[in-house]
């Protein structure tokens, strides 16, 4: 079991309130991702749940029981750190065994779980090495192994992939998702990378300056962002924002349209523009277009890989009307 409830939880460092009072429930078995720009308080929130920081006010409940003053060792949660935080003086086997040793699990059971974890994480051949003799990806897997064996109520991940190179990152992302499918244990995953959030999460919590902007499934956030911040943060490439007359006509201060919801033509359309840069990725092409409707920023349009366009070409853009997001002067979504 692993249902975690935050009730008006806040955190200040000295006089600085990093997290204003906040409510959040993480259901048992859910894969929840905290996402937001760097410095928004994701790690702090995770460390409050872990018990590594004391909360300033409010209450944390784990499976209904008040855990506010329970030390981290007693909360039954496992954490995977960005720096891996392996014990450098112990072998991989000892690293993985450590939480079980602390829990007083008998040796035979320890060995059984280590073997199972090592097999699942491809670490069988490395059990007698020290962390210093492993690659980044292997260290990451040891950290995960150490978290799995104690069968925690929930896993906490703090940007576990950000020290890996791009190719490994995708692989590990899949491994962690698969782990979740297999174990069905609650996982809370912190990242600043919205692609990780979109691909892994059952539920995304978007944070800005310690405040929850929106909670929802990846598709919820993509289709119905509740304000401009979420709209701009979720989705890649970023949503285009248009202000002024075009927006006013629809009764909004700002309208937003995603690059994949704009159709393009060389002959006719709603907005005229010229191609600035064309990025050909093969399957897709991203066009960055200068247009009078959005004088301050270039507009991004996603088109087929076959579409040929070059710098200076004149093009016409037409947004798909049902995909236009409307925002008021306060930045909130207008239905």
């Amino acid at each position: 079991m692993g249902r975690i409830t935050l009730d008006k939880v806040s955190k200040s460092f000295g006089d600085v309130e990093v997290i204003p009072p906040l409510d959040l429930t993480i259901e048992d078995g859910e894969f929840t991702v905290f996402v937001g720009p760097s410095g928004c308080g994701k790690s702090t929130l995770l460390r409050l749940i872990a018990g590594l920081e004391d909360i300033t006010s409010g209450q944390i409940r784990i499976d209904g029981a008040d855990a506010t003053n329970v030390p981290p060792a007693k909360r039954g949660l496992a954490m995977v750190f960005q720096s891996y935080a392996l014990y450098p003086h112990m072998t991989v086997r000892k690293n993985i065994a450590f939480p079980m040793k602390m829990a007083g699990i008998d040796q035979a059971e320890q060995d059984r779980r280590i073997d199972a974890a090592a097999k699942a994480l491809n670490l069988t051949d490395y059990l007698d090495r020290r962390p210093g003799q492993l690659s980044g990806g292997q260290r990451q897997r040891v950290a995960i192994g150490r978290a799995i064996v104690r069968e925690p109520a929930a896993f906490l991940f703090d940007e576990p992939l950000s020290n890996l190179d791009a190719a490994l990152r995708v692989g590990m992302r899949l491994e962690i998702s698969e782990l979740h499918e297999r174990l069905k244990t609650t996982m809370i995953y912190v990242t600043h990378d919205q692609v990780e959030a979109m691909t892994m999460a059952d539920k995304i919590v978007v944070l800005q300056a310690g405040v929850i902007e929106q909670v929802g499934s990846p598709l919820d956030l993509y289709e119905r962002p509740c304000n401009k911040f979420v709209a701009g943060f979720i989705g890649s490439p970023k949503m285009n924002f248009i202000e002024g007359e075009e927006a006013a006509e629809l009764g909004a201060t700002t309208i937003g349209i995603r690059p994949e919801h704009i159709s393009i033509s060389t002959t006719e359309g709603q907005w005229k523009g010229t191609v600035g840069v064309a990025e050909h990725l093969g399957s897709d092409t991203f066009l960055y277009i200068h247009s009078d409707v959005s004088p301050s920023e270039t507009m991004t349009v996603r088109v087929d890989g076959e579409f040929s366009a070059r710098h200076g070409d004149t093009v016409y853009l037409t947004p798909r009307a049902e995909r236009i997001h409307k925002f008021g002067a306060d930045g909130l979504r207008i239905e």
């Binding site: 872990a50 590594l52 030390p71 981290p72 060792a73 007693k74 949660l77 496992a78 954490m79 750190f81 720096s83 935080a85 392996l86 014990y87 450098p88 450590f98 939480p99 602390m102 829990a103 150490r146 104690r150």
Partner: peptide, 15 residues
């Protein structure tokens, strides 16, 4: 010594 390693020990149930 990185503080995170000691925190990891705490998370692993060490007193």
């Amino acid at each position: 010594i990185p503080g995170e390693i000691l925190e990891a020990a705490r998370m692993d149930g060490a007193t």
